[in-house]
């Protein structure tokens, strides 16, 4: 896939600590790229460097193959995690103000805003003051302002925090739509469920270092460590005894259907285990237990990958 943004050996030092240490990553065009990491890992610093809010001590950022220039900021839409609005300004007027700062003319800004407001069903807010809006409402407005100038690169820092599931879903769909229209999206979050749902690729930053990069599917598969779940009807005791030589039984759950959590090591193959089980019990399902991004995140941060 075509490369859109490349971060090369970026290091940034603040008084006392290193926020980023030799971080490199490549973001493909037209993908949703997850930037993960625990609090204080350096995600926001990296985003600020990409936004040219702050400069790296060393290292470079390339956009579309060329080194990032001050004008390129116009190609980026950024929704920071900490975001605010002028409380006393009216919603419409304030949205126009932000849009004009992004380089849109007033009439163009109004035209696009009206379109978005209708799509989000919030036309009636236009003349309301911001202080009358709830937190979720204000965030909808901020989302619109971020994407209004149709930038090539969108950066969202924790976009779903403070949203109810209905609105979070609305937002998710809009983000995916924007990607399908050709925007590249960087998505910084702690919410691993949403990562699995919408991210194509991720980078995990921990303690200023890039510790894990790749596509979400590949990473999850690569970290599956030979665990399987076998559901069946039949004699648990007999099956357990028969399987004992071929694999390790990690857990045994009894219910309407019994299930066993197995670890199949080097000594046996999946086919062998299924063969034995098939002789003794009625198999309902057999599946590889792919770790969730959440597990991978926790293990990676704890240094246990």
């Amino acid at each position: 896939m075509e490369e859109f943004l490349r971060v090369e050996h970026v290091t940034k030092q603040f008084a006392g600590h290193k926020a980023l240490d030799d971080v490199s990553l490549t973001i493909p065009r037209g993908s949703v790229y997850g930037l993960l990491g625990p609090n204080g890992a350096g995600k926001t610093t990296l985003i600020r460097i990409i936004n040219r809010i702050t400069a790296p001590d060393s290292g470079k950022v390339f956009i579309g193959g060329k080194e990032l220039q001050p004008e390129d900021v116009g190609r980026i839409g950024y929704l920071p995690e900490e975001r605010g609005l002028y409380k006393n300004m009216k919603v419409g007027e304030q949205a126009i103000y932000f849009a004009r700062l992004k380089g849109l003319s007033r009439p163009e800004a109004i035209r696009r805003l009206k379109e978005w407001f209708v799509r989000f069903g919030i036309e009636s807010w236009w003349n309301k003051k911001v202080e009358e809006l709830s937190k979720g409402m204000a965030q909808k407005m901020q989302f619109i302002v971020t994407v209004l100038h149709e930038p090539e690169l969108l950066i969202f820092d924790e976009p779903f925090s403070g949203f109810d599931p209905v609105n979070a879903n609305l937002l998710k769909e809009e983000i995916l739509k924007l990607r399908d229209k050709g925007s590249t999206v960087i998505f910084s979050t702690h919410n691993m469920a949403s990562v699995e749902e919408i991210c194509d690729d991720i980078t995990l930053i921990n303690a200023s270092h890039n510790i894990l990069s790749g596509s979400v599917d590949a990473i999850r598969r690569a970290h599956g460590n030979g665990q399987y779940l076998l559901s069946f009807r039949g004699d648990v005791e007999a099956l357990s005894t028969a399987l004992d030589e071929h694999c390790t039984i990690l857990a045994n759950e009894e219910g309407e259907t019994d299930s066993l959590k197995l670890h199949i090591g080097e000594e046996s193959s999946v086919r062998e285990v299924i063969g034995i089980a098939n002789e003794l019990v009625e198999i309902r399902s057999f599946q590889e237990m792919i770790p969730s991004m959440n597990d991978i995140f926790i293990r990676a941060v704890a240094g246990k990958l």
Binding site: G77, Y78, R83, G84, L85, Q142, V145
Partner: peptide, 12 residues
């Protein structure tokens, strides 16, 4: 304190 600045600095 409003955090408006956070939003602004990406465009100006």
């Amino acid at each position: 304190s409003n955090k408006v600045l956070e939003v602004m600095v990406s465009s100006v």
